[in-house]
Amino acid sequence: MFSYEFMRNAFAAGTIIAVICGIMGVFVIARNMSFLTHTLSEIGFSGAAFGVFAGWAPLNGMLLFTVVSSVIVGQLSARSERREAATSAISALFIGMGILFLSLANKNASYATSILFGSVIGISASDVRQMLWLSLVVLIVVFVLYRFLKFDSFDHTGARVKGLWTNALSITFLVLVALSVSVAAQIVGSLLIFILLTLPAATAKYFAHTVGGMMVLAIALALIGVWSGLTLSYMTNYPVSFFIAAIEAIFYFVALGWQRLQTAE
C-alpha cells in the first residue's frame, strides 16, 4: 500500500489531521461548539466550491470562507442564545451558495462528491506541505494560548472573573477551528469533518482524568480512525469517510455505554 505515492501522501495528511483534530476537539467539546463546527464545515464546502468556480485550489477557497465567517460568527455569538439560530441561518445560506458556485463552475458531479465526502487519491505532496504549515500555525497558537484557552473553555465564569479577554479568545479560537476544518476536509470531506473534530474528543472525555489525558486520548482515537479508515478504504475501495465515521461513531457509543455502566453501579 505504501508503494503508492498517493497512499503515502494520504497517510501523512491523515496523521496531521488526526493530531490537529484531537487537540482542537478537546476545546470544541469543552466549549460546546459541535454545532458551530458543523456549520463551519458547511461554510468550508461553500468556500471550496467558490475556489473551484474562481479557478483556485479548493483549500484556498475554504480558508477564505471559513476564516472570514468565523470572525463574523465570533462577533455574533458573544451572546450564546442567539448563536444557534444565527448559525443555522448562516449555514443554510452558505450551502446554497456552495451549490450555486458548483453549478456555475460547470464541474461534474464527481468533483462535488470529492469536496463533500473527501477523497484519498487527490492529495499531492505539495498539498501535504501546505497542510503541515497550516497545522503548525494552529499548534503554535494553541501552545502559546494554552492556559488561557483551557481556563476559558473549562471554566468560562472563572476566566471572565480573571479579566481574560474572553471575546477575543473566542474569536481566535474560531479562526483556529476554521483552519482545522479546512485542513481536515482534504481527506474526510467537508460533510464529515466535524466528526473528527468532535467525536474523538467527546469519546475521550469519558475515559480521561485530566485535560492533557483527554487530549492524548483524542489524538489516539483520531489516529486509529484515520489510519484504519485509510487502510480499509485501500483494501475495499469503499470511501474513506465512511470508515472513519463508522469507527469514530463506534468508539463514541462504546464510551457512552461504558459511562452508563459506570454510573449505574
Binding site: 494554552y146 492556559r147 488561557f148 481556563f151 473549562f154 468560562h156 472563572g158
Partner: peptide, 24 residues
C-alpha cells in the same frame, strides 16, 4: 457552570487561575 463530565480534577481546576504567557 461546569459540565459534570469534564475530566477536570479539583487540582486542575484550582490551577486554571495560574495564567500568563507561560508553558501549557
Amino acid at each position: 457552570n461546569i459540565d459534570a463530565d469534564y475530566p477536570l480534577t479539583i487540582r486542575d481546576f484550582v490551577g486554571l487561575n495560574l495564567t500568563g504567557w507561560k508553558l501549557p
